[in-house]
Computed example of a mutant assay.
Amino acid sequence: MLAGESHLWGRRALEFVDAADRLDAPSLVRQFESHIASAGFSAYIMAALPAPGAGLAELTLANGWPRGWFELYVGRNYMAVDPVPRHGAATVQPFEWSDAPYDRKRDRAAHQVMTDAAEFGLVRGYCIPLHYDDGGAMISMAGEAPDLDPTAKGAMQLIGVYAHNRLRSLNRPKPQRRLLTSRECEILSWAAQGKTAWEISMILRIAERTVKFHLIEASRKLNAVNRTAAVAKALSLGLIRL
């Protein structure tokens, strides 16, 4: 890859990162698809890693696979034997599809997945595994002859991670302010500023035991183990602000 091309990929990735948080889901997906297409990737999928009892459709965050391939993949339950997500669950490093280990002779089902994928133009692929505290996911993209230069792959990783995280955030259920009462939000707001229950009771001119009751109720509703956790969760959900 020429130095100019390397610089171009870096600029594209940074421009996407800068814009991602301001884009809605359709705009984000269009830009993501445009960027990966520039690198020769004609198809992709963003999905949670395989989980017992969960089908691919319900695990999928964004689907850019050919329709026929997706239907075949689901219909034949290829998720159970596909070496790519299997390897993605075991590593934190991005990898090319060809690096996902399997024995062609002993693991014929895995080899069949890769053979069938190639018939849909998914000859060479790149997978970006993501691991969160509450589970894992992967961004898998492929094409007939994509650019797998290290610089291009680095750009795809950055673009993919930001696209996935933004879509994940947009798809997260929006908090309902009714989750907490106005009084509970008010008390948590003061708690977030470091005020004790007694100090809050003086500020709001209510009994200290009433303040403690509301803190306990707010913690219960937020499924938080204590007051500090309740404050942190309320802040992250946008229920209160500092």
Rank of each mutant, 00 (worst) to 15 (best):
S182E: 12
A192T: 02
S201E: 02
I203Q: 10
I187A: 09
I216Q: 09
E199F: 08
K195C: 05
T181G: 12
A207D: 04
L179Y: 00
T196R: 15
L215G: 02
T196L: 08
C185F: 07
R209C: 09
Q193L: 09
I203V: 05
T196S: 10
G194T: 06
Q193S: 14
T210E: 07
R172W: 00
C185T: 10
I203M: 09
E184W: 10
E208K: 15
A207Y: 05
L179T: 03
M202G: 12
R183C: 07
A207R: 12
P173N: 12
W190F: 15
R209A: 07
C185G: 11
N171E: 13
V211E: 02
I206M: 04
K195L: 10
V211T: 13
K195Q: 09
L180M: 06
T210C: 06
I200P: 06
L204E: 03
E184P: 08
G194Y: 00
L188W: 02
W190Y: 13
E186G: 08
S182P: 01
M202E: 14
I216L: 09
F213N: 15
I216P: 00
I206N: 04
E217D: 06
A218N: 10
E217K: 11
K212A: 06
S189D: 00
L180P: 01
G194A: 02
E208N: 13
K212F: 08
K221Q: 04
A197E: 05
I200N: 05
W198K: 04
I200H: 03
T196P: 02
A218G: 13
T196V: 09
R178V: 08
I200K: 01
M202K: 15
E186A: 06
V211H: 02
A191K: 09
P173D: 13
S189H: 01
E184K: 09
R172G: 02
M202A: 14
L188K: 07
I216E: 00
I206G: 05
K174F: 10
L204T: 01
F213T: 15
P175V: 12
L188F: 04
I203K: 08
T210G: 10
F213K: 13
E184V: 13
R183M: 11
F213Q: 14
L204V: 07
H214M: 04
I216A: 12
R177C: 10
A197V: 09
N171T: 10
R209Q: 11
L204M: 08
R178H: 10
P173E: 14
R172I: 07
W198L: 06
E217V: 11
P173R: 04
C185P: 11
S182G: 04
E199N: 14
S201L: 05
W190K: 07
R177D: 07
T181V: 06
T196C: 03
P175D: 03
H214Q: 06
P173T: 15
S189I: 09
Q193A: 13
E199L: 02
Q193Y: 05
K221W: 09
I206S: 04
E208Y: 03
R205V: 11
H214R: 01
A192E: 05
T181D: 04
R220W: 14
I216S: 13
K174M: 11
L180Q: 04
L179N: 00
K174R: 15
I187Y: 03
C185S: 07
H214G: 07
I200M: 06
A192F: 12
G194P: 00
R172Y: 03
I206C: 05
K174P: 05
A191T: 13
M202P: 10
Q193D: 11
R183D: 08
